[in-house]
Write a protein that binds this DNA or RNA. Sequence first.
DNA 1: GTAGTTGGTATACTCTGTGATACTGATTAC
DNA 2: GTAATCAGTATCACAGAGTATACCAACTAC
Lengths: 117, 117
Amino acid sequence: MATPSLVRNQSEEVKALQDTIYVIGGKWKLPIINSICNGNKRFREIERSIPGITTRMLSRELKEMEMNKLIKRTVYPDSPVLVEYESTPYCKTFGNIILAMIEWGKEHKKYIIEQPE
Amino acid sequence: MATPSLVRNQSEEVKALQDTIYVIGGKWKLPIINSICNGNKRFREIERSIPGITTRMLSRELKEMEMNKLIKRTVYPDSPVLVEYESTPYCKTFGNIILAMIEWGKEHKKYIIEQPE
DNA sequence: GTAGTTGGTATACTCTGTGATACTGATTAC
DNA sequence: GTAATCAGTATCACAGAGTATACCAACTAC
């Protein structure tokens, strides 16, 4: 018998952790959030603001992020159809995580560089 | 001219963020940290504690995490060579991030499920 | 002897994420 | 007419992440 009482529900925690990573992971999610929070709303506008991203990737990521309710997509079906993206209040709920990760990333860089060994 | 003053050094922040994601990203890093923090020290021990992982993946991830100073690998060259892994104090510096991410992941699950729309 | 454990490596494979490029239909501008 | 912009989609290709399986050398147990 493994000692189940010591293990807590770690597997559940790891899952939650992996969910979070999945939601903001990959190469483009963060730059996209960044761009939208910077005021860019239109597809091409966002695209132009992120050097190196392709329409394909942007399209896919936006869809996924919409499914995860991180952004809202609004279509104005007027004469020339207009599409706007905005970050949701929900997107801002992990603002603290993002800040913490930024800090950690910066410290990590220092840490790795300063200890060549 | 784009409005540079509004942009802060977002690109730097995004990079730091991506560094962090890189360090703990992928399928196995978190489960491994979890396992080691749970008291597992030996290679096969860790391997057995993480269902589905292969020796190859575990080996690779451990190496990478050692390079990133998240874990320490100690070899005791006695009669049967003994190898032990432990998490470093440094590894614990993102304990808060991990906790925040666990919380966020749990909330996110609820949020997505509760709003079928 | 055989079988098992330890800490891995080697080889071959699949599968996913990402990239490159072209294209569409609607609209506007010239 | 041509060209450009909008919001994407389609198709192909490739590298890297991950999987499967076998194997190694040293040691222990029987």
